[in-house]
Deep mutational scan, measured.
Amino acid sequence: ELREAFRLYDKEGNGYISTDVMREILAELDETLSSEDLDAMIDEIDADGSGTVDFEEFMGVMT
Rank of each mutant, 00 (worst) to 15 (best):
V61H: 12
D30W: 14
V61L: 12
F58M: 02
E1M: 12
G51N: 05
A27D: 02
E56M: 09
F55Q: 03
L8E: 15
A40W: 10
T52D: 05
T52N: 08
E57Y: 06
T32E: 08
D54A: 09
F6K: 11
D54Q: 09
I25W: 04
D43K: 14
T63M: 13
I17A: 00
E36M: 09
Y9R: 05
E12A: 07
V61M: 11
D10I: 03
F6D: 11
G13H: 05
D48F: 06
D54I: 06
S34R: 08
F58C: 03
D46V: 04
D39S: 07
D20S: 13
E44M: 12
G15N: 04
I45N: 01
L8W: 14
D20V: 13
N14Q: 08
A5H: 13
I42F: 04
L33W: 10
I45M: 11
F6Y: 03
D43G: 11
S50R: 08
D43Q: 13
E57I: 09
D39G: 05
D43W: 12
F55W: 09
M41H: 04
E1T: 13
E24M: 14
M59L: 12
D48Y: 06
N14S: 07
E12I: 04
Y16Q: 06
A27R: 14
Y9D: 03
I42G: 01
D30A: 06
L29W: 14
L8M: 14
R23N: 00
E4D: 14
E31Q: 14
I25L: 11
F55I: 09
I17G: 00
G51M: 05
S35W: 08
T19I: 14
G49R: 12
M59S: 11
R7G: 15
R23C: 02
M22A: 04
Y16T: 06
A47E: 08
A5Y: 15
T32S: 13
D48S: 07
S34E: 05
I25Y: 04
Y16P: 01
D20K: 13
R7N: 15
E28A: 15
I17L: 08
A40P: 01
I25F: 07
E1K: 14
D39A: 08
A40Y: 10
A5F: 15
F6P: 07
D20I: 11
R7M: 14
E56V: 09
Y9W: 12
G60V: 14
E36V: 09
V61Y: 15
K11V: 13
M62A: 05
E28K: 15
L38I: 12
L26H: 00
D37S: 08
M22G: 00
E31L: 11
R7K: 14
K11M: 10
D43R: 13
V21K: 11
T32G: 10
A27N: 06
S34D: 06
E28T: 11
E44D: 10
D10H: 00
S35Q: 13
M41I: 11
T52F: 07
K11L: 12
E31V: 12
D20P: 05
I45G: 02
V53Q: 00
R7E: 15
A40N: 10
M62Y: 07
F58R: 00
M62Q: 04
D10N: 00
T32R: 10
I45P: 01
E44I: 12
M59T: 08
D46Q: 03
S18P: 10
M22T: 01
I25T: 01
T32Q: 09
V21Y: 08
D39N: 09
F55S: 02
S18L: 07
N14P: 01
I42R: 00
L2E: 04
F6Q: 08
D46W: 03
E24Y: 12
S34N: 09
D30R: 09
T32C: 08
E57Q: 15
V61C: 12
D37R: 10
L2H: 06
E44P: 03
D10A: 02
Y9S: 04
I17W: 02
G51D: 04
E12P: 02
N14M: 11
D54G: 11
V53G: 01
D46I: 04
V61A: 15
G49H: 11
G13D: 08
T52W: 05
F6N: 10
F58L: 04
G13N: 09
E56S: 09
E57M: 13
L2I: 08
M22V: 07
I45V: 09
T32Y: 08
E4I: 07
I42C: 01
D39R: 07
L33G: 01
R23I: 03
E44F: 14
A5E: 08
M41Y: 09
R23Y: 03
R3N: 09
S34K: 08
G51I: 01
D48L: 06
F58H: 00
S35C: 07
S35G: 11
Y16N: 03
S50H: 05
L29K: 08
A47F: 09
T63W: 06
M59D: 02
Y9C: 14
I45K: 01
G13W: 02
A27K: 14
V61G: 10
M59P: 00
D20H: 11
A5Q: 14
I17F: 04
D39W: 06
D54F: 07
G15A: 01
F6C: 15
R7P: 13
E12D: 11
E28V: 09
Y9V: 05
T19H: 06
E57F: 06
G13C: 06
G13T: 02
S35F: 08
R23F: 02
A27T: 10
M59Q: 10
S18K: 06
T19G: 03
T19F: 14
L38R: 03
M62P: 02
E36C: 09
M59V: 15
V53K: 01
D30C: 10
L33S: 03
V61E: 02
V53L: 08
K11I: 12
I17D: 00
E12G: 05
D20A: 13
L8Y: 15
D10T: 01
E56P: 06
L26I: 07
D48I: 05
L29T: 06
G49F: 05
F58E: 00
I17E: 00
K11Q: 10
D43L: 14
S18V: 04
R7T: 13
F55K: 01
E44T: 12
I45W: 06
E28R: 15
G15S: 02
D37A: 11
L26V: 03
Y9K: 03
L38T: 01
R3D: 14
F58I: 03
E12Q: 08
F55N: 01
G49N: 12
D37P: 01
D48C: 05
A5N: 07
G15M: 02
L8V: 14
M22K: 00
E4M: 05
G13E: 06
S50C: 04
D54P: 05
I25E: 00
A47C: 10
I17H: 00
G49V: 04
F6R: 08
T19M: 12
T52L: 08
L29C: 14
E31F: 11
L2R: 02
L29P: 00
G49C: 09
F55M: 07
E28P: 01
A27E: 05
F58K: 00
V53P: 00
I25V: 07
S18I: 04
M41T: 03
A5V: 15
E44W: 14
E44N: 12
I17P: 00
K11Y: 10
T19Q: 04
M59E: 09
K11N: 08
E28M: 14
T19C: 05
L33E: 01
D20G: 10
T52G: 05
R23L: 03
V61N: 04
S34L: 06
E56A: 10
S34F: 04
E31A: 14
S35H: 10
L26K: 00
I45D: 00
D39E: 08
D30G: 05
E57G: 14
V61P: 02
V21L: 14
G51E: 03
E31N: 13
V53C: 04
L38F: 03
S50M: 06
E36D: 11
A40G: 07
D20M: 10
T32P: 02
D54R: 08
S18F: 06
G15E: 03
D37W: 08
D20L: 12
S18Y: 07
T52C: 04
S18D: 05
E4R: 06
V61D: 01
G15I: 03
T63R: 10
D48K: 08
G60Y: 15
E12C: 07
F58G: 00
E28L: 12
I17K: 00
D39F: 06
D37T: 10
A40E: 09
G60M: 15
L33K: 04
M59G: 03
G49W: 03
M62C: 12
D43P: 03
L2D: 04
L33M: 08
R7H: 13
R7L: 15
E36S: 11
D30K: 08
D30Y: 13
E31P: 15
D20E: 13
S35L: 10
D39Q: 08
R7S: 14
L8Q: 15
T63A: 11
D43I: 12
A47Y: 09
M22H: 00
G15V: 02
A47K: 13
D39T: 05
I42A: 02
G49T: 05
D39C: 05
V21A: 14
M41V: 06
S50W: 03
G15L: 03
